[in-house]
């Protein structure tokens, strides 16, 4: 009988913690003494994916930098729900300036740290998808192009949630928003190329680009840690479902994020120097219907007369992603226990 190395099948690497793992291999979130960068008492909706993603990412960055971190936050839900006077939920050095300038403010901070010789202090910029792919893109592209020593994190919930769910450049096709209503002959958002920020970031040839979701914590934390090992401009794009804007159950936030990955609609990968270096293969390939049908923003595709043609177009997008990034589980024999970490 052949032997095989002991692997943690019970919860694999997928759960937050695992008593069977050596302490060094456990997630930051499993640590009772984690930073809790974004602390309790914030005013995010029930089941907010962005609140989760932000704490995951910043706690991981805090660990990776031994607490030597400055964070710049763009205007948006995250900023509004975390810092309404007279209370802040942040437990870190944090600044909010404007909607579209977080990457540039981060550049300024990084420059300040460099000029003061405090190179151990690292800078993270963060914004929602609006602040990243739309209004902040100019500053972000500039920051990338200069290769400033900033990790910029986009918490992508695929629309302007703060202002009441209006379409952004990251809103997917057919999704209903307040500015792409589910009316007319082609309800919901248009079918377009979308603004694929990770790929745009890669086009800048910056040292590190990665995507992640709140459904795979190990992967997300690993990417933050990797990002903090690198100097220069880095970009992390995290999918964070929004129960309000997506019309999903507050308890389904992580499930929906997981399905986004498992359908292929949200490819999870990392790239260094403009080249994809690793992907997270899909564990259980799932048809897009399962993902779409959980969300009120796609409700118009279902019901008595489902829009099979639209669903097929969305499936085609997923299939394209799977082919482009090689996400098919069959292509990865060792897709098992270590799972998410490519």
């Amino acid at each position: 009988m052949t032997t095989q190395p002991v692997r943690f099948f019970q919860v694999g690497s997928f759960a937050v913690g695992n008593r069977l793992l050596p302490s060094g291999d456990r997630t930051v979130q499993s640590d009772a003494d984690r930073t809790n960068s974004l602390d309790a008492g914030h005013r995010a909706c029930q089941g907010c994916g962005e609140a989760l993603g932000a704490r995951y990412a910043i706690d991981a960055a805090m660990r990776a930098t031994a607490g030597r971190l400055l964070v710049v936050n763009a205007t948006g839900c995250l900023e509004v729900f975390s810092t309404p006077y007279p209370q802040t939920s942040w437990r870190i050095a944090w600044l909010h300036s404007l909607f579209g300038n977080a990457p540039a403010v981060a550049t300024g901070m990084a420059a300040a740290m460099k000029v003061k010789g405090k190179t151990d202090v690292r800078v993270v910029g963060q914004a929602g998808d609006g602040g990243t792919v739309d209004i902040g893109f100019g500053c972000l592209s500039g920051m990338f192009e200069r290769n400033d020593d900033v990790l910029f994190i986009c918490y992508d919930n695929e629309a302007y949630m703060n202002t009441g769910v209006q379409r952004s450049g990251a809103t997917p096709p057919a999704a209903r928003t307040a500015t792409t209503e589910a009316v007319g002959s082609q309800p919901g958002n248009v079918f377009g190329q979308g603004k694929d920020l990770p790929r745009l970031a890669m086009a800048h040839d910056i040292p590190y680009v990665a995507t992640a979701t709140v459904a795979d914590l190990h992967d997300l934390e690993g990417k933050v840690e990797r990002a903090m090992q690198i100097r220069g401009a880095r970009y992390l794009h995290i999918l964070v479902p929004c129960p309000l804007g997506w019309g999903s159950a507050s308890s389904d936030t992580i499930r929906v994020a997981r399905l986004a990955q498992e359908t292929g609609l949200f490819p999870v990968f990392e790239a260094e120097g403009g080249q994809v270096t690793a992907v997270s293969p899909i564990r259980h390939r799932t048809p897009v219907e399962e993902y779409l049908s959980l969300q009120g923003r796609y409700a118009h595709l279902f019901g008595e007369h489902p829009s099979l043609d639209v669903i097929a177009r969305i499936q085609a997008i997923a299939d394209h992603n799977i082919a482009r990034y090689g996400l098919d589980p069959g292509e990865h024999d060792d897709a098992g226990p270590e799972g998410g970490r490519p």
Binding site: V6, G17, S30, L217
Partner: peptide, 25 residues
């Protein structure tokens, strides 16, 4: 290996998931 395949159905085995996934700490 086999023992670790147990799913611990219905009883907390301290995987930290609830601790980790709570958006409100």
């Amino acid at each position: 290996f086999e023992a670790r395949r147990c799913l611990s159905c219905g009883n907390c085995f301290e995987c930290d998931n609830c601790f980790g996934v709570c958006p409100d700490n």
